[in-house]
Design a protein around this nucleic acid. Structure first.
Ligand SMILES: [Zn+2]
Ligand SMILES: [Zn+2]
Ligand SMILES: [Zn+2]
Ligand SMILES: [Zn+2]
Lengths: 121, 121
DNA sequence: TATGGAAATGAAAATCATTTTCATTTGTGC
DNA sequence: GCACAAATGAAAATGATTTTCATTTCCATA
């Protein structure tokens, strides 16, 4: 299992919002960094395992990754420029718990994302 | 644009929870129904356009489809058997609106799903 | 320093869902 | 029957992701 590659982390830092594996790869190429696509995938995978980045899916199904504080949280993502704000979701946590209880579900997790246009767009 | 194919709708009805295009195709094959994979994809796409089904993504990125009331709502999905309950998300709507306002986002939508184990599993 | 094995790397091939192409079939009105 | 549009589906193309496998880089120990 490859270690959390610092060069990939650095790209994600500079990228700001979410970026796909292919984008990370292209970015590194453009900047003259020598790396294989396979290594990009492996590094991102291991960063996800270690909870250093979180991953979600574009509308077309492509996985996108983002550096990310470890604590559980949610996102407000701009459809225009990709700008992302990490937000707190107390209301969601409560909602999820209530609903799960009501229907007898155990061992529950949840996803919740908000998409819109940021002030700049 | 292909019409909302009633045979595909029927499969989704019988399938219960979510099913991928490939699964719908395999199911119809197994039941001796003659249909092309392309047509399955086209029918599902048009059902999504017409809001007769909603679509979300498996963890691996594969799109899954489900017959679905037209109104906006959310899902409680069993990780074990796929059993799905449509739930109401008043708390989420409010949360999304509040967060969007706070950060000046316009034109916002949201997704929210809960995953867990149903009573049977 | 040499050396043997473990971990990391990456090029190329394989996988697999989804889309595109394009020729054929089906349906509908005249 | 005839023309024409919509629907269909087989096969090829696409594109992200994973797998394979040979090579390189590290690292500990003799
Ligand atoms: Zn995050
Ligand atoms: Zn923006
Ligand atoms: Zn639904
Ligand atoms: Zn279940």
């Amino acid at each position: 299992m490859s270690r959390s590659n610092p060069r990939v982390v650095s790209v994600l830092e500079r990228a700001g919002g979410f970026a796909s594996a292919q984008e990370v790869y292209r970015l590194m190429q453009r900047e003259g960094e020598s790396i294989g696509l396979t290594t990009v995938y492996r590094s991102l995978q291991s960063l996800v395992n270690d909870k250093f980045v979180d991953v979600l899916r574009r509308e077309d199904g492509e996985a996108i990754y983002r550096l990310c504080g470890g604590a559980h949280h949610h996102h407000l993502v701009c459809k225009g420029c990709g700008e992302t704000v990490e937000i707190e979701g107390g209301a969601i946590e409560k909602w999820a718990k209530t609903m799960a209880q009501e229907f007898g579900f155990r061992d529950v997790g949840h996803t919740a994302e908000i998409f819109g246009l940021c002030p700049k767009c």
